[in-house]
Simulated scan of single mutants.
Amino acid sequence: MRAAELLQNRRAAAQIEVRDAVGNLLADGDQVTLIKDLDVKGAGQTLKRGTLIKSIRLTGDQQEIDCKYEGIKGLVLRAEFVRKR
């Protein structure tokens, strides 16, 4: 991704409100907990309910958040399956 595209995505993310499953407003750097067991496509593993995901990033999409979890690259979660911690 070029620098201009990255800047544009960050500006778009700042304008969109992303809310978790219970309605809490999410922001970059928040910690979230999974509220449902999720099968991760391509990774061959399941993230269990209650798993803590640290330091999320907003993507500019109202329902998707980008995050890191050990052993899984490029993990994108739907906001409806997480709760702000």
Rank of each mutant, 00 (worst) to 15 (best):
T59D: 03
R19C: 11
N24I: 00
N9W: 11
N24Y: 08
G60W: 01
V82K: 09
V76G: 05
V40K: 07
E70C: 01
A12C: 04
V82A: 13
A14R: 01
R83S: 13
V76I: 15
Q31G: 13
V40Q: 12
A79L: 11
S55Q: 15
R2K: 14
E64L: 14
D66M: 09
C67E: 12
I65V: 15
A27M: 03
L26D: 03
R49H: 07
G23V: 12
F81S: 09
L47M: 03
K68V: 00
R49Y: 04
S55W: 07
A43E: 04
R11G: 07
Y69Q: 02
L7N: 14
G44R: 03
V40W: 08
T51R: 07
D61N: 05
D37C: 08
K68G: 07
I56W: 05
V22F: 12
R85Y: 04
E64A: 10
I72E: 00
V40H: 09
K36D: 13
D66L: 14
A21C: 15
K36R: 13
Q31H: 09
E17L: 11
S55H: 12
T46R: 12
G44M: 04
D37P: 06
K73Y: 06
E17K: 10
A43T: 06
Q62Y: 03
E70V: 02
N9R: 15
A79S: 15
F81N: 14
N24A: 06
L38Q: 14
